[in-house]
Amino acid sequence: MPWAMLILSGALEAVWAAALHRASRAAGSRRLVPAAVFLVSVLASTAGLAVAMQTIPVGTAYAVWVGVGVVLTSAYAMIAKVERATAGRILLLAGIAACVAGLKVAA
């Protein structure tokens, strides 16, 4: 259960990063929804990380949380055409994902 919480919290990290991106590009009252999504998801993401750290060692938990967030945030940026989806970038992100899976196996 702590690992599922950690993966979900990492996914929420990508949600708050995407919401922050949208809020920074919106104007006026159009910022309210992405700002609210940012606030809720950053709090939930951090809380989930804290819960997972009660069972999973801090270094492992933080590395997995960040790794999941990085891969999903980068995927969002490529799908949204904010960043280019190059073969090198995709290969390196796959390497991060493999390292995150390796941390689970090694734990």
Results as ranks from 00 to 15, higher is better:
82 V>S: 11
18 A>I: 03
41 S>K: 07
1 M>T: 01
24 S>P: 00
79 I>N: 09
80 A>M: 08
71 V>R: 07
60 T>H: 04
53 M>H: 02
43 L>G: 12
58 V>I: 14
102 G>R: 09
80 A>W: 06
52 A>S: 07
93 L>S: 11
51 V>F: 05
5 M>G: 00
67 G>H: 02
85 A>F: 14
17 A>G: 10
13 E>L: 11
66 V>Q: 03
27 A>M: 12
64 V>E: 03
65 W>Y: 10
74 S>W: 04
60 T>L: 10
60 T>K: 06
45 S>Y: 03
43 L>H: 05
79 I>S: 11
94 A>G: 15
19 A>R: 01
91 L>F: 12
1 M>V: 01
27 A>W: 10
26 A>Q: 10
41 S>P: 00
12 L>H: 03
15 V>C: 05
84 R>F: 08
92 L>W: 12
14 A>Q: 05
6 L>H: 02
94 A>M: 11
99 C>N: 12
62 Y>P: 02
50 A>K: 11
84 R>C: 12
84 R>Q: 14
3 W>D: 07
31 R>W: 07
98 A>C: 15
72 L>N: 06
5 M>H: 01
89 R>P: 04
98 A>F: 12
84 R>S: 14
50 A>P: 06
56 I>L: 01
50 A>G: 09
19 A>C: 05
89 R>L: 14
13 E>R: 06
18 A>F: 06
93 L>K: 09
90 I>E: 09
34 P>L: 09
30 R>D: 14
60 T>V: 13
2 P>S: 15
85 A>C: 13
4 A>H: 05
